[in-house]
Design a binder for these strands. Structure first.
Lengths: 186, 186
DNA sequence: AGTATCATGTAAGAGGTTACATGATTTT
DNA sequence: AAAATCATGTAACCTCTTACATGATACT
């Protein structure tokens, strides 16, 4: 079975299942509780996605709880070894400069999931990677504003892009410092 | 014909056509040239979307140029009066606090298209609206971080969200000041 | 004459949304 | 007993991506 590529949503689901065995309903509640319901997956997206992960052999469902025989009908998903491997490999995916802006939210999600799952060295490497990608993006935006003739509003909108990505960049640098300080030797 | 609601992509296309009659290929080049190809619509997305706009009576195509009889086969789209109306109405849509984070890019796009199309007073109103929505979002995030027990990485990721949205907020405030300064009386 | 670019489109397949369906269990 | 919540799922519809198809025109 060739390593099938997953959607961003599937990767996030797999990650959540790796951090704790969960049913579809559990996952729904996690999304609902998370810093505002920025993304609220519908049943029609969630349950088929879980079935796809199962079909690909990345998760496995227990339809009953051995402990309590009278539990409600629910399918609790656990990662398979292959699923854990796929998740780890996703966490270790390098940040691509070309898509750093588009995927920033996803990278942050990966960063959150790296805690306790990847060694500090790799987390720092990820952050350095992110810093470089953001620097490149900011530089390119900057260059574009200088080279191109633009309307007043278009220029202001680009200023916005520069401001927020510089804020991301500062965050990444600050976070490297904070995590490096925790343990003297990397 | 009840005012049919458009996708974000369709709204952007309509806006571009309102600012200058364009063919599908023209629009493709605009997306390609824009500050990095963050979004590069495929033919399979672009041409059907234009047909949908045409079907909804918002744009009209001229298949030939009256000026040059031997031009290449291209469909140049123009807005209909109904299309201009729909576009203006889209530009005037208020910013909703609940979705300001998700739709920020789209709002910026609207801001760019407002230039020369909406009076300065309305632009300032939009920016005030945006400021309030961003303030509310930042406050909610802040509250969430204070109330909730979080892992170290999750807390850092929320710090990122706070940092970038505060940057957006500062931009909006700065932009209000800049545009207000241009003409002394609002 | 051959290649690159212009220009528009379609077909297959994937995945999402909305809305509905279904039933068990817990709360009031 | 009724209502709310838990819990999973399906069906119809829409739009996107990828890949391919098709020709006309401009360049070399």
């Amino acid at each position: 079975m060739a390593r099938p590529q997953l959607t961003a949503f599937e990767h996030v689901l797999l990650g959540l299942i790796c951090s704790a065995p969960s049913s579809g309903y559990d996952l729904k509640r996690i999304f609902a509780a998370t810093p505002m319901g920025i993304y609220q997956p519908s049943s029609g997206a969630l349950y088929p996605a879980l079935r796809r992960l199962e079909l690909k052999g990345l998760v496995r469902a227990q339809s009953f709880d051995r402990a309590a025989p009278s539990v409600r009908h629910r399918r609790v998903y656990e990662p398979t070894p292959m699923g854990r491997e796929a998740h780890a490999s996703w966490l270790s995916t390098p940040v691509e400069a070309a898509t750093v802006s588009r995927d920033l939210g996803l990278h942050l999600m990966r960063f959150v999931m790296m805690e306790h799952e990847r060694p500090r060295g790799e987390v720092l490497e990820f952050l350095h990677n992110l810093t470089e990608a953001l620097s490149a993006f900011v530089a390119e935006l900057q260059r574009y504003t200088e080279v191109t003739e633009l309307g007043a509003h278009a220029r202001l909108a680009l200023d916005h892009g520069l401001a927020v990505h510089r804020a991301s960049l500062r965050w990444a640098e600050h976070t490297i410092a904070a995590l490096s300080a925790k343990t003297p030797g990397e």
